[in-house]
């Protein structure tokens, strides 16, 4: 169906190296998420795969064939855009049918495919409406429907949930994951939100400045980040980075401790700190503290913890969860 392989894919705009050279293997049926801060080249990489941009150099193999110089439509991929990019002057039905019409399918085939896609996506009642008359979530589903009917080798998603409100985003996340389980088609999903990456992906590709920082399963990236960037990017709230004496004690340049891997005590511990702000979320509490001699840190404590401004506390990292980094930000093996 859809195995995609990138070989030394390179993209320059003028003198600017947006993608200096990426190698990547995406297996058939995999849900791969490209994640990274804005401007890291993740969308550009997706557009290169889609064929909306020319590669400057390198190969893009879909099921073994190099498509780097093929027109987008010839690659057998479909794409869901951030803005949904629905045709505003066409009904939902015609939006979904457009690709099939362009491919010259017969009316009956088109109707059958559109109806079945509409059924999967709960759009049957809306087929005669225009996109303007739909809610954000419904538009999103139309965009997905348009992608499904073409029976592509792979789906490409470009930040599809960023225009939705928080509650709807969680819903659509589940829907897309469900869709993947049902269709078992390769999906490449671009997002800047590491939560989406963690929850949806089979495989996460972390990008920064056009470079692949690390590729792996979500929990692998969480537990064994290859470098300081990945360690800081994956996980929320962000990992605390500590230098100086405490790092020297662990025989490295800098250590990283996740907020959830710090034990809180009022009696004693490794690091003394003053609480600045306590955010009580109910199930858990985020403590923003000023550690003596180390600067600001974030701690994730239980929901019931009764601490407030200016309380003195002590923090102790779980020893086997400490990440050690050298002066280049690379992870040192062995704790």
């Amino acid at each position: 169906m859809g195995a995609i392989r990138l070989e030394k894919v390179k993209k320059t705009f003028g003198t600017l190296d947006v993608i200096p050279g990426v190698d990547l293997d995406i297996n058939d049926g995999e849900f791969v998420v490209f994640v990274g801060p804005s401007g890291c080249g993740k969308s550009t990489l997706l557009r290169l795969i889609a064929g909306l941009e020319d590669v400057t150099d390198g190969k893009i193999l879909i099921n073994g064939t190099d498509v780097a110089n093929e027109a987008p439509a010839k690659r057998g991929l479909s794409m869901v855009f951030q803005s949904y990019a629905l045709y505003p002057h066409m009904t939902v039905y015609n939006n979904i049918a457009f690709g099939l019409k362009m491919a010259g399918e017969s009316k009956d085939v088109i109707d059958e495919k559109v109806q079945s896609a509409a059924k999967i996506l709960n759009l049957t009642d809306y087929l005669e409406r225009r996109p303007g008359a739909l809610s954000g979530g419904q538009r999103q589903r139309v965009a997905i429907g348009r992608a499904i009917v073409r029976n592509p080798a792979a789906f490409l998603f470009d930040e599809p949930l960023s225009n939705l409100d928080a509650a709807l985003r969680v819903n659509m996340r589940l829907e897309i994951t469900g869709l993947h389980q049902e269709l078992k088609t390769t999906m490449i999903y671009v997002t800047h939100d590491q939560v989406e990456a963690m929850t949806m992906a089979d495989k996460i590709v972390v990008l920064q400045a056009g470079r692949v920082e690390q590729v792996g399963k979500p929990m692998d990236l969480y537990s064994n980040p290859a470098n300081k960037f990945v360690a800081g990017f994956i996980g929320s709230p962000k990992m605390n980075f500590l230098g100086g004496d405490i790092a020297a004690k662990h025989d490295c340049h800098e250590i990283g401790v996740r907020p959830e891997h710090l034990a809180v005590s009022t009696d004693g511990g490794e690091i003394a700190a003053t609480v600045k702000i306590a955010e009580h979320l109910g199930a858990e509490t985020y403590l923003h503290v000023e550690a003596d001699g180390l600067g600001p840190m974030t701690v994730r404590a239980t929901g019931e913890v009764d601490l407030g401004e200016n309380d003195r506390i002590f923090l102790t990292p779980e020893q086997d969860r400490i990440h050690r980094f050298d002066q280049h930000g690379l992870t040192l093996s062995g704790a």
Binding site: A73, A85, Y87, R146
Partner: peptide, 27 residues
């Protein structure tokens, strides 16, 4: 007119004339 929409048409397999006639001009 969002470029996305024209790109969507291209992904949907529309050729340049079709992209202009069926998508751009009506909008």
């Amino acid at each position: 007119i969002p470029t996305d929409i024209l790109e969507a048409a291209r992904m949907d397999g529309a050729t340049l004339p079709k992209e202009i006639i069926f998508v751009l001009l009506p909008m």
